[in-house]
């Protein structure tokens, strides 16, 4: 029997949507392979995370609760994940293509001598059995790949899957005696400087408001993007150019090498739409471009293009959205 081990991600003890989208990918794969699903939760003081995941159809939830696992340091987490995979008899190890998954899962693959498919957007049938679809060349082409080793390692792109709904049923929670070996990892956690925001995060938001270089400065970025994000209850994103120029924090970056999003509604404000940016947002359901021109690459993917200066258009837009909301 095939077994898929899903690595849970959480923040402040709350399960992240990335865990549920990975579970969705795992279910699709389980249907094709005839596999069972287990979940692994690693960290320190994480009992709550495991109990929150019992309704999702996993057979066993392995809890590796250990002080040395508090920070997701790649060598120690990879070792413990590989150890749990062996104990569970898992032949597929899956995680989100978040920065955590991207950092750690290749080390798991190397430990298990497994082939790895990164940033998977679909589970597909190929002539050689179940495979994975993944974007290459900034999404200019999609590749169907197969893994030829007995054990597979996969990271799933969050925006390409739905959050798996709870299906009821109970999972067995099993404490796993982890041996992280922090000393041998020769890695020391120094600090984490979190981006503070009360807005939704990019990977969980239904609406994203992203700003680009056309906003000219950090002040301009804040002045244009923040009121609109607040008016629609959206998350804030940015083009690489805006991040490079210091208009906003690095984890706002949307694109090939930043975050990939597919919200219901995407506002691109003063963004021209380089291919690398489009790679991170072109699967959004509805795209609105607000720009001083209507012949930029962004306009070729936008459903609605509004031509105008963001600094005059956005206050009007915010005011009218507020009026709409007030009218119910």
């Amino acid at each position: 029997m095939s077994k898929i081990l899903v690595i849970a991600e959480y923040i402040d003890g709350v399960v992240k949507k990335a865990t549920l989208t990975t579970l969705d990918m795992a279910r699709q794969l389980a249907d094709k392979k005839g596999a069972d699903i287990d979940i692994a939760v690693l960290g320190s003081n994480i009992g709550g995370v495991a109990s929150a995941l019992t309704g999702y159809g996993a057979g066993t939830i392995y809890v590796a609760d250990h002080a040395e696992l508090e920070h997701a340091l790649a060598p120690t987490w990879a070792k413990v994940i590989a150890d749990i995979a062996e104990e569970a008899g898992a032949d597929v190890i899956a995680a989100s293509a978040s920065t955590l998954g991207k950092d750690i899962l290749p080390r798991v693959a190397a430990r298990l001598e497994a082939g790895m498919a990164s940033d998977v957007v679909a589970v597909v049938d190929t002539d050689d059995g179940p495979g994975f679809r993944r974007p290459m060349w900034a999404g200019a082409l999609l590749a169907d790949v197969v893994i030829d080793t007995d054990t597979w390692v996969v990271t799933a792109r969050g925006s390409a899957f739905d959050a798996a709904p709870a299906t009821g049923g109970e999972s067995t929670i099993e404490s796993f005696a982890a041996e992280p070996g922090l000393g041998a990892s020769r890695t020391r956690f120094v600090k984490f400087d979190g981006t503070k925001s009360d807005r939704p995060t990019l990977d969980e938001a239904d609406i994203v408001v992203a700003g680009g270089r056309g906003l000219k400065s950090a002040d301009g970025f804040a002045q244009a993007v923040e009121p609109l994000a607040d008016a629609v209850g959206g998350a804030i994103g940015a083009s690489r150019a805006a991040v490079d120029d210091g208009f906003c924090p690095n984890d706002y970056q949307i694109g090939q090498t930043g975050k990939v999003v597919a919200p219901q509604l995407y506002f691109a404000v003063a963004i021209s739409g380089a291919i690398q940016h489009l790679a991170g947002m072109k699967n959004s359901k509805v795209i609105v471009a607000i720009n001083t021109r209507d012949d930029e690459p962004i306009n070729k993917v936008a459903d609605y293009s509004l031509v105008g200066d963001a600094f005059t258009v956005i206050p009007e837009l915010c005011e009218k959205i507020a009026a709409l909301k007030a009218a119910g």
Binding site: G115, M136, L141, V145, V146, I147, L306, E316
Partner: peptide, 24 residues
């Protein structure tokens, strides 16, 4: 021996340009 093989490449579904709206 490589562990991962590309069996097929294809073009993603295109997205067609929408409309330019007159105002807010």
């Amino acid at each position: 021996e490589p562990k991962v093989r590309v069996v097929k490449l294809h073009e993603p579904a295109g997205r067609s340009a929408g409309v330019v709206v007159a105002d807010v």
